[in-house]
Design a protein around this nucleic acid. Structure first.
Length: 471
RNA sequence: UCCCCGGUAGCUCAGUCGGUAGAGCAGGUGGCUGUUAACCACCCUGUCGCUGGUUCGAGUCCGGCCCGGGGAGCCA
């Protein structure tokens, strides 16, 4: 197509910027491809900062008028895509160790004056409005490299421990999981759906019943835990809540391990190991990106993460937590009283002031927790746990599950769920039931904690929130 | 969904008491430089979110709507 073009000659031997920057010695000839972040041009010399996303740093390309297309090159704009072939040498100037002296530069994709990204600081809101271009910015480059690295770390943690990865369904007919509003999945004609007695006849829908997008893989996860002992899910989750906050999205990714032959203490130990592993992984493998977040996004971030990685995780019962809050003398906006759920301000006070580190709050009143959590001996509380960390509050929520059939049925009736509608879930308790436990971690909330980003939309490649499904 | 704040050039923002719109960056032209978000000079850039109203006159004051941000609720 382009015979003898530089691009064609380079295809087999492109070197990533991250590889080039890790070089031990100079190289006579190599080829890099990427997008121009900033450029400084002059009559006798020009500098391009070339970035290919393989790492945070850009590679300095030095271009001189000896190149036949020099006049054309110094007219390119930020964002142009280049193929550069040249010599890798140690940089004589400060600011970078290596630079490439170009022998040939081909403009693979030019830009024009309309290219929205400039070599200046943009607001996160503006970048969000051009979600298709923001991965080329420093901040989002770092965020999405981090997202990829931590996804891998999640799998590595569980796989190293012999957990089985299970794909729970995206489409589900469980309308009573109680975890939030579901998106409807239907092939019925929205204009004129079939009706019986004025009501929509879902039996004529694609699946023969009312279905929606999953709000949690936990129930199916429990099934697999009672066959494979230790399992985890890690997949997309959907909530149709009209909540417009910096911490909620309509589509997000959730991690839900489920372990058989385990009680609440085992569950807490797993959650502690997991969080410590992920934070340590980030510190060990994402140093360059973390330094950027530490400098530009959240000052003190690395110190916060190191402190968590080395912290002792305390445990406090809900009853003790309420007593400690009442005894603190602190005036809170929301009331503290046994039986009421802890508010965000209470959670942060507990982890930041009372404990001064990560803390599990356990054994909540049954009335404020889900039906599947195991009823304690006192018959007032359930074996639930929330892991609270400084600056964020709740980051993990889990429980030991109710494995006793009669008690589970009773709890379902109390909260208005028809037991027959979840017959398949009850069957676990009917045949070969065993104690089991698990927890849920919102992947984006973890990312927010580790990167310091304050809006959930800024850690999702293409965020979906009420009124927004563009790109 | 509720409460608070905001919307001015491509971007970030200023705009006094209501008197007819401005700076930096980006873009263009030229100069200069082993440069580091380079620098210097000149040039270009506007439906002041939309819509009604008050006024001789509205970016500025008032109502409605749209969009964005923060907080709350719900939760992960």
């Amino acid at each position: 197509m382009f015979p003898n073009s530089l691009e064609e000659r380079c295809i087999m031997e492109r070197t990533s910027v991250t590889t080039v920057l890790r070089a031990e010695s100079p190289a006579e000839s190599l080829c890099v491809k990427g997008w121009v972040r900033t450029l400084r041009t002059g009559k006798d010399i020009a500098f391009f900062a070339l970035n290919d996303g393989s790492c945070f740093a850009s590679l300095q390309v030095v271009v001189t008028p000896q190149l036949s297309n020099y006049e054309e090159l110094i007219k390119i704009g930020t964002g142009a895509c280049l193929c550069v072939e040249g010599t890798l040498v140690e940089s004589p100037a400060s600011g970078q160790r290596w630079e490439i002296h170009a022998r040939a530069v081909e403009i693979l994709g030019p830009t024009d004056a309309d290219y929205p990204l400039q070599k200046k600081r943009h607001s996160l809101e503006f970048l969000r409005s051009i979600a298709h271009l923001r991965p080329r910015s420093n901040t989002f480059g770092a965020v999405f490299r981090m997202r990829s690295a931590l996804s891998f770390a999640v799998h590595r943690f569980f796989q190293e421990r012999g957990f089985m990865y299970v794909h729970t369904p995206i489409i589900t007919a469980n309308d009573c999981e109680g975890a939030g509003e579901m998106f409807r999945v239907s092939t019925l004609d929205a204009e004129t759906p079939p009706r019986v007695d004025g009501k929509i006849d879902w039996t004529q829908d694609f699946f023969g019943e009312k279905t929606g997008l999953t709000v949690s893989g936990q129930l199916q996860g429990e099934l697999f835990a009672t066959a494979f002992s230790d399992i985890y899910t890690f997949g997309p989750t959907f909530r149709a809540e009209n909540s417009n906050t910096s911490r909620h999205a309509a589509e997000f990714w959730m991690i839900e391990p489920e372990i058989a032959f385990a009680d609440l203490a085992d569950d807490c130990r797993l959650a502690e190991d997991f969080l410590r592993y992920l934070v340590t992984y980030a510190l060990e493998h994402c140093g360059e990106d973390l330094s950027f977040f530490n400098e530009r996004i959240e000052s003190g971030l690395i110190e916060k993460l190191e402190s968590l990685a080395n912290a002792r995780f305390e445990t406090l019962t809900y009853s003790d937590a309420v007593s400690r809050l009442l005894a603190s003398g602190e005036s809170f906006q929301f009331p503290v009283q046994w039986g009421l759920d802890l508010q965000s301000e209470h959670e942060r006070y507990l982890t930041e002031k009372v404990i001064g580190g990560p803390v599990f709050v356990t054994d909540y009143p049954a009335e404020i927790k889900a039906f599947y959590m195991r009823l304690n001996e006192d018959e007032k509380t359930v074996a639930a746990m929330d892991l609270l960390v400084p600056r964020v509050g709740e980051i993990i929520g889990g429980s030991q599950r109710e494995e006793r059939l009669e008690i589970l049925i009773q709890r379902m009736k109390q909260v208005g769920i028809v037991p027959e509608s979840l017959g398949w879930y009850l069957d676990i308790r009917r045949w070969g039931s065993c104690s089991h436990a698990g927890f849920g971690l919102g992947f984006e909330r973890l990312l927010m904690y580790i990167t310091g980003m304050e809006n959930i939309r800024d850690v999702i490649p293409f965020p979906r929130t009420p009124g927004h499904a563009r790109f």
